[in-house]
Design a protein around this nucleic acid. Structure first.
Lengths: 157, 157
DNA sequence: TTCTATTGATTGACACGTAAACTATCGACA
DNA sequence: TGTCGATAGTTTACGTGTCAATCAATAGAA
């Protein structure tokens, strides 16, 4: 069958175990999805990580300490600095020192950043629908439930 | 924690649609899985991409053109060169020119590489079982089927 | 045969994730 | 008051993913 990952990868003996098949399939599928999203964002000059930061800022709706942004992403502390640097250079966000605690630096979503998010609203929703066109409501619920169950023992340390 | 994301200022719900939830969940879960695998591999001095190359070579069981290796990985063409460079420096693989078509360079799994794979066989199998401990056979089959359906429209163009 | 298009592989530029080490500031406590 | 530990953020370094451009060898056509 066309969707069989084993043949797609070209292994003679596709998978030794269902566990192996499921995990490789999971990683590969996520990779493909991310690639497609990245392609869309690139048309607007954004990377997925940058888009993620903008969405976090919009979601919180307030100036947010840099490390709090980092926490809500998958990225670790050090990488966030350059990420914010680039967004600032694009004038999509700006830094703002906290007056009470001068160690803290807030990140603020700028008007250009808000416009960018608004412009991406439609295209990203369209893309999501297209990506999941093969699944109905029930399938989505099942998929979400199964993914939750995979992730559950991983969320801790 | 989960609830305080959107509600507080009426900005955004955590997830607007099931599509969004499913896709974010997919990407996040895959990311966690990869992080866990990476941690294991690191103990043996390998990155996930390097391990992937070794497994591809073992799976095919023959000298393989560099670009064919690249095709079978999650990654695209250009980055493969440096990856092979590092594996060659570790003496896990070696390059070998094709005699019939001198543009082609084969990658060959070396003895050290095979040993490395053998040493990782047990630990990786254990890890896979641990990661998927929350899912039974039927769950795995369902998950695989759903992932196939997500990936199907993505593999071609 | 020579010209051209194609293919395999490499290089360089940029973005990102992660780890280790560093600076600056704050808070608490002797 | 002064010191010490914790916290916020940055810098540096390395491996990797992706793109655009390039080089070398081959294949096909004029």
């Amino acid at each position: 069958m066309a969707g069989d990952l084993g043949q797609r990868i070209g292994k003679r003996e596709p998978f030794e175990t269902k566990e192996e098949e499921a995990l490789l399939n999971l990683v590969r599928t996520a990779d493909r999805v991310q690639a497609r999203v990245a392609r869309l964002l690139k048309e607007h000059g954004l990377t997925p990580a940058q888009y993620n930061v903008l969405r976090i800022l919009r979601g919180l709706g307030r100036p947010t300490p840099i490390l709090e942004v980092a926490e809500r992403m998958l990225t670790e502390t050090p990488g966030i600095t350059g990420l914010i640097d680039r967004l600032e250079k694009l004038e999509l966000v700006r830094r703002q020192r906290c007056e009470h605690d001068r160690r803290v630096i807030f990140v603020v979503l700028g008007p250009k950043g808000a416009d960018m998010l608004a412009a991406l609203e439609g295209p990203t929703a369209e893309l999501r629908s297209a990506l999941l066109s093969g699944l109905d409501e029930g399938d989505l619920s099942t998929l979400i439930r199964l993914l939750d169950r995979v992730r559950e023992p991983l969320e801790g340390p």
